[in-house]
Design a protein around this nucleic acid. Sequence first.
DNA 1: ATCTTTATGGACCTATAATATCCATAATAG
DNA 2: CTATTATGGATATTATAGGTCCATAAAGAT
Lengths: 172, 172
Amino acid sequence: MKLYFNRWKVLLMQFSKSTGYALHAIIHLARAERGHHVGIKELAALLGVSESYLSKIMSKLRQDGIVRAMTGASGGYELAKSAKLITFFDVIQVVEGRQTMYECFNMDSLQHQLFFESEAQASDPSEHHEGQNCECLVKKVMDGAEQQMVHYLQQHTIQGVLDSAASKKCTK
Amino acid sequence: MKLYFNRWKVLLMQFSKSTGYALHAIIHLARAERGHHVGIKELAALLGVSESYLSKIMSKLRQDGIVRAMTGASGGYELAKSAKLITFFDVIQVVEGRQTMYECFNMDSLQHQLFFESEAQASDPSEHHEGQNCECLVKKVMDGAEQQMVHYLQQHTIQGVLDSAASKKCTK
DNA sequence: ATCTTTATGGACCTATAATATCCATAATAG
DNA sequence: CTATTATGGATATTATAGGTCCATAAAGAT
Ligand code: SF4
Ligand code: SF4
């Protein structure tokens, strides 16, 4: 029972499950008391994911300075800095990477060259991407869209979510 | 030569190449004269992609009312509406789908329930997602971020890019 | 010192989405 | 009727997401 192109199971352009795991793990750490280490066992059980897999994600978070880890008995993870200083973007970036969301698929394509034909006679086409003053508008719009999202994610911290949750209390 | 987890080739959260193809194809159609049909051969050659593959994408664009198609000799594609009325979002949505970018990975997880523990004693947990007034803040931030991007993409039309390209002329 | 607990990182595996090709069929102009 | 062009089904290929297993290292407890 495979799904074919016309019935395309379009799932693209989604955050990975790993991002969800990372966010929820961080939030749990933020709720723990200062100085207390939370083990991978506890985290994995909480999120309903295997310890092996989650440990890979936690390890990346450690390498990026979001959390601290300690081995040995009564070891585990804790936040490396205040939850006020950890934005959604920080966490997401660790898992999803740092490339731009839209990459030009073919700079050698005929159309790409046509896009710069206006005054491409004088200089060589590849040079046009260096200077900031002469950028392709397609790419510009796509990058602009990404920036909108990034900016929003940079403005929302883990602490912010905790605070709102505490104060709001789901007013029904 | 495989890449392993620690060297994760993080490419996630990117627009697909298909989106690039779709956008560039639409732009080419917008530049063509009114009433003229552009064949898949021309488009595929222009973008440097196979005719078979591009035709799938064009077919989806047709189903969504972005372009019109005509079979037979001197057939091909043309825009179904003015380029002023086609936003980046319209095109992207066809290829990338319509789901939200962040999907909750596990509503049965212990943490999800903890998040709603505040007043979850009275009613059942699954009901909390129905009402708009009591939404999870993690999900809310993620959806908010998506909305920022979507809104931006909805404000930029294909015609807008063509106009800017014509007027600006890469002022060096 | 030795044992136990816990994180780390390498190698491997599997499922699925993204990308691509081939071909039979339908529709249209001339 | 014929040449041309889009359509859609079936299939193949490749890359990535998602997940497992195990040997090793580090740190606390005995
Ligand atoms: S988006 Fe612009 S710069 Fe990128 S390939 Fe297309 S025409 Fe070239
Ligand atoms: S993001 Fe919120 S609603 Fe979604 S699974 Fe996590 S706690 Fe539940």
